[in-house]
Nucleic acid binder design. Structure first.
Length: 492
RNA sequence: GCCCCCAUCGUCUAGCGGCCCAGGACAACACCCUUUCAAGGUGUAGAUCGCGGGUUCGAAUCCCGCUGGGGGUACCA
């Protein structure tokens, strides 16, 4: 079994594209087949330099690799359509279709086609129902030769039958036959005036030449599938099996995800600190499921369990909350050292540590990781949570220092007592700190929440922070006492 | 407009004729744990299975219609 993902390099790869690639990849890996990558750059106008490399980086990031592709080659190279066009591949097959009567040379320009549409409307026909059929369908070889001799620009169009129906089956729709009336179709362009093939011709010729057995692609291709069926028949080639995967809809359900309107560039998720394994798991579940309760699965488990028949026919909706939750689950599964290593780039970017980090910073980061490990849902949140360990804090607001049912004087007294108590300690570990401060709360007649709350604000500058004793230890004796002194000054 | 596809809690989904007055997860809420926040635990709420007809002893599951949503309607992919 051989499948492929064939993106058009017109910009970054969004998660919907990654999901389609993923289903192809899972299918290939599950059955031990091959997965290939092909670049479909037949749209010269929308071509974006560098987009193909960017897309490949996105795929690699989530863990999708390919057996044949533009960068690694393969038995059917090249894997870039513009390069294949230069080899004359598409021209050859377009000519074959003209020769066997399934396609024809058309000299109608876009302007003329517009005119034909207007005439159609003038005859009282519904303009929306206009289906282009070129007058050259009935031309003789001589007429065509004459027009060519005049140097008129031309396209090659598929000669779609005027009557009858065309149908095909789709794996995802339970093998249901999807069928359309040929009268609702039109003579689509196979080879543009520029000699560049359209997607319809190019992808089909390449799929055939590359031995693709299953075409797994987005459902936006369902309407054009009948043309592809006709093309396979016209060439006399074996038809691949079709599987049109549902689109991922926008969060509000209004339309499918779009690059322009939605923040769904795959790169953005990498930048915000999503783990590729979490993204992989989440995306696999957009349209596919294993059973009624299993969600967290390793790559290997998903590969083993995946089946295209269990892919839903109805569209899924983009749910960033669920992705975020899943990312948190995956972060919690990481070891301390693994998470520390993944966090370093984020801390560097935030300017909290050097780039590259020093050995001391790496060690310190690893010491801090346990304090925020289970509080993280995106790696990017770490810099905010850890900032006060790396930078000096501003003197805390008095109203934050004063806890519930306390006043400024009582808070100051508590701080002074804590200060004295902490200076008496001959060590600085969590056990000692906790024992000393709990005892102090008791003698002061305070609830531990009151005392600890005040100290938390004094030492971190915020009301929400990692556990107090671990924080004091990580901060160190010196800095802790200095910050407590500053807090006292604020209240005096 | 026309053509095609789809339709279970707000969202992702399980369900493929009786096990379902519908199960799991996210989000929400409550409680427990607890030095804050998380994490974890327990629980609550949330779907007359879009609506209407059939078929059947029996339908979320099969069929038809309607409605709704999505996609397509390019010398873009």
């Amino acid at each position: 079994m051989r499948v492929r993902f064939a993106p058009s390099p017109t910009g970054f790869l969004h998660i919907g594209g990654v999901r389609t690639a993923l289903f192809n990849w899972l299918f290939a890996r599950h059955y031990g087949g091959q997965f290939l990558l092909r670049i479909e750059d037949t749209d010269e106008k929308r071509f974006v330099p560098g987009a193909a490399d960017d897309m490949m980086a996105s795929l690699r990031w989530v863990g999708i690799d390919w057996d044949e592709g533009p960068d690694i080659g393969g038995p059917h190279a090249p894997y870039v359509q513009s390069e294949r066009k230069d080899l004359g591949i598409y021209q050859r097959y377009a000519d074959e279709l003209v020769a066997n009567g399934h396609a024809y040379t058309c000299f109608v320009t876009p302007e003329q086609e517009e005119h034909m549409r207007a005439e159609w409307a003038a005859r009282g026909e519904r303009p929306e129902r206009f289906r282009f059929r070129g007058p050259e369908r009935e031309w003789s070889a001589e007429q065509v030769a004459e027009a060519k001799a005049q140097g008129l620009p031309f396209t090659i169009r598929l000669k779609v039958p005027l009557t009858g129906t065309t149908s095909f089956t789709d794996l995802i729709r339970g093998g249901e036959r999807i069928s359309v009336n040929n009268a609702d179709l039109y003579d689509l362009v196979l080879l543009k005036t520029t000699k560049m093939p359209t997607y319809h011709l190019a992808h089909l010729v390449d799929d055939h030449l590359m031995g693709i057995t299953h075409v797994i692609r987005g459902e936006e291709w369902v309407p054009s599938a009948p043309y592809h069926v006709m093309l396979y028949q016209a060439f006399g080639w074996n038809m691949p099996t079709f599987a049109h995967v549902p689109n991922i809809l926008r969060q509000d359900g209004r339309g499918k995800l779009s690059k322009r309107k939605d923040d769904v560039s795959t790169n953005r998720f990498w930048e915000r600190g999503y783990l590729p394994e979490a993204m992989f798991n989440y995306l696999a579940l957009q349209g596919w499921s294993y059973d009624d309760h299993t969600e967290i699965m390793s790559r290997a488990e998903i590969v083993e369990r995946f089946s295209i028949e269990r892919v839903q026919a109805s569209p899924a909706r983009w749910n960033p909350d669920k992705l975020k939750d899943m990312n948190g689950i995956y972060i919690r599964k990481l070891s301390t050292s693994d998470l520390a290593a993944r966090l370093l780039p984020f801390l560097s970017n935030a300017g909290l540590i050097a780039n590259p980090p020093t050995d001391g910073e790496c060690t310190y980061a690893e010491q801090l990781v346990p304090l925020i490990h289970e509080r993280l849902e995106e790696l990017g949140e770490a810099s905010e949570l850890l900032e006060f360990f790396f930078k000096d804090i501003a003197a805390p607001e008095p109203n934050l220092l004063v806890q519930k049912k306390m006043d400024a004087a009582g808070t100051l007294a508590a701080l002074e007592a804590a200060d004295a108590e902490l200076r008496k300690l001959d060590g600085w570990n969590e056990g000692q700190l906790e024992a000393a401060l709990r005892a102090l709360a008791e003698t002061l007649g305070l609830k531990v929440g009151q005392l600890f709350g005040t100290l938390r604000v004094a030492v971190t500058g915020r009301t929400v922070a990692p556990p107090l004793f671990a924080t004091l230890v990580a901060l160190g004796h010196e800095r802790s006492l200095a910050r407590i002194a500053t807090a006292q000054a604020v209240l005096r």
